[in-house]
Structures are given as C-alpha cells and as structure tokens.
C-alpha cells in the first residue's frame, strides 16, 4: 500500500532501448570563460557518460560553489548545486539512500581542499562508490583571484598581493594519507586523452575514486601550468594495466613510469616528488570496505515495521 517500500523498485532503470549520444547529456550552454579548463573536463565527462551509456535520470552530479561547481547545470542529468565545500556530504546522503544511482561529485580547489577539507578526508575514508573530481586551477575564480590552498607559493593574488605565503597543499599526498582511500589519480585538462582515460578508470572503480584534474584559469592564473603545457618533458605518465594506459600519448609524453597502483609506498613517494608532474593512477585498491555495503540493511515494509514497533512498545510497557 505504501509507496515508500517500493520506491527503489519503481525507480529502477527500465531496459535501455535507446542509444545515448553525446548530445543526450547536454544541458545548458556552458558559461565558463573562453579557454577555461572546465570546458575540456565537461567534454570528457560527456564522452564518458556516452561511452558508458549511463542512463541520464539514473545519474546525479553534485557540486559545491565556485566556477567548477556550475558543472551540473551544463549536463542533462540530475544535478545538485549546493553550498560551498559541502558537495561530499550531499553525495554521501544520495548514495547511501540510492546506491543504484551513478553519483559524481565536482569540486574546485577552494571547495574541496579548503572549506570542505574535513568532508574530503572523511569521504575518502567512507569509500562510498562515488566518482570525485577535483578541478584544481590553484585559485579562487568566481570570487576573483584569492589564494587557495593549492595556489603556488609566491603567486600574487588579491588576498595575498605580495605573493601567497605558504607552500601549496598537495592534494595527492593528503588523499594518499587517508586510511581506506581506495583510488587516487591525477590528470590534466590539456591532455584530453589522458583525462578521459583517467575518468573512465575512476568511474569503473568500485569505491570513492578521487581524481585531481590540473587545469588552467586563463583569466587569473594563466602561467601556473604554462611550462608543463608547453614542455611535455615536464610530465611523467604513470602507466599500468590496473591504472591507465594511453598508447596514443606515447609520442608526446615519452617519459613514463610503470607504476603498480597497488604499491602505496611508491604512490606516496611519487605524489611528493616535485621535479615533475606525474599523471596517472597513483593508488588503487578494490578490496577496501565500502560504507554503503557496510551499512546495508534489509528494507522493511510499513507493516513489518509496525509489528516490530509493537514489540518495542512491549519492551517499554508499564
């Protein structure tokens, strides 16, 4: 009689008889600045959704606040554009209640590593099956050029005009330090093939897959990754069958390391290395417990609940 116990059943996907095209996932016209790295992430995500044939209504993009957090508006899926720093708790709630949904979380560097840092650490530990994208351009863009935790030391901003005071926070090293983290990767928006391959590996990983995407802000920090964009020798690809392999990039990025993502010690060493930018899957462990599995409970019908509640009242009967 009640809808509540049938809710999940009713909303199960029907047999997909239609083929989804890239355009099936297009939402509003993206309004980011020309040349913003967000555009290429959006394209890679749409490509991923198409390749995986994700059912749009079974897919939710959750974001916080910032330039990158406009992301859900530009997709034709369900979206949740919430508050600054708090995308991950919302994603946790969605996934806990509706584990059958594909849940993506999109955050900027201020969102994830500053105001939302507590949630970032704990989401990695919960290890729900979420795909988490950190769009890291090292600057607050929407509020116009303030220092973020990942702003390079010395870079002049509106809040630290003499140059950012502190060494930049290393999101990979932090993530790799969290107990029960199960997937940590880094890619760059100016290497679309690598970006796409990394997103696909992240999506296919069961557990929280954390992907730091290096990207340029053409308005406020055009110089930050300029050297790496112009000189591919500054980039080292981490290749492994269990991570990402991008043979089409071999000619551009000849510097490669065969890195087994199961090797956490090497992953941490590579994450700390500042001589080169490493792109690839640093760490992956499919065996880590996932919170939604750990907390799985048998659903009960309203009538079952009511009869059990009568037993509870018996316990408290005078």
């Amino acid at each position: 009689m009640s809808l509540s116990c049938h809710l999940l059943h009713v909303l199960q996907p029907e047999e997909a008889d239609n083929q989804y095209e890239m355009t099936s996932y297009e939402g509003a016209q993206a309004r980011w600045c020309p040349g913003c790295g967000d555009h290429s992430v959006l394209t890679a995500v749409q490509k991923l959704l198409t390749a995986e044939q994700l059912i749009p209504e079974q897919t939710v993009f959750v974001s916080g606040i910032g330039c990158s957090s406009r992301f859900p508006h530009y997709l034709k899926t369900y979206g949740f554009h919430g508050i600054h720093g708090r995308a991950l708790p919302v994603s946790t709630g969605v996934k806990l209640h509706r584990p059958e949904l594909n849940v993506f979380t999109v955050m900027g560097d201020g969102d994830c590593t500053s105001i939302g840092a507590a949630h970032w650490i704990h989401a990695l530990r919960y290890n729900l099956d979420l795909t988490v994208l950190l769009l890291d351009n090292g600057i607050y863009g929407l509020t116009k050029k303030q220092t973020s935790p990942t702003t390079p030391q010395g870079l002049k901003t509106n809040t630290q005009p003499k140059g950012s005071f502190l060494p930049a926070l290393n999101p990979l090293a932090v993530s790799l330090g969290v107990t029960n983290a199960s997937f940590v990767a880094q890619t760059a928006e100016w290497a679309p093939a690598h970006l796409y391959a990394t997103l696909r590996a992240a999506y296919r990983h069961k557990g929280t897959s954390f992907v730091r995407i290096l990207q340029r802000c053409p308005v406020f920090t055009p110089e930050v990754f300029q050297a790496a964009v112009q000189d591919p020798a500054r980039i080292v690809l981490l290749v492994h069958d269990d991570g990402v392999v991008t043979p089409e990039l071999n000619r551009i990025y000849s510097s490669q390391i065969h890195h087994d993502p199961g090797d956490i010690a090497t992953a941490r060493r590579l994450a700390e290395a500042d001589d080169h930018i490493h792109l690839g899957v640093f760490f992956r462990d499919q065996s880590r417990p996932r919170y939604e599995e750990t907390r799985k409970v048998t659903p009960r019908s309203p009538n079952e609940r009511m009869s059990r509640l009568e037993e509870e009242f018996d316990r408290y009967a005078v």
């Binding site: 708790p89 709630g93 806990l96 907390r295």
Partner: peptide, 30 residues
C-alpha cells in the same frame, strides 16, 4: 537496523545536515 534504517554518524554537524539533505533529495525524508 531492525526497521531498515541506519544512524549515520557524520564527521561533523554540517556534514550530518548535508547527508540528510542528500538522502532527502534522493527520495526519502531524512
């Protein structure tokens, strides 16, 4: 859990509200 429910102890008060709102948005009132 006997009633098909869970208590989720969040990392902080803010996250507890966020998880409840996320669950509610996803179809059930938390």
């Amino acid at each position: 859990e006997r009633f098909g429910g869970i208590v989720h102890q969040s990392e902080d008060e803010i996250a507890a509200a966020g998880v409840a709102i996320g669950a509610s948005y996803a179809g059930k009132v938390a």
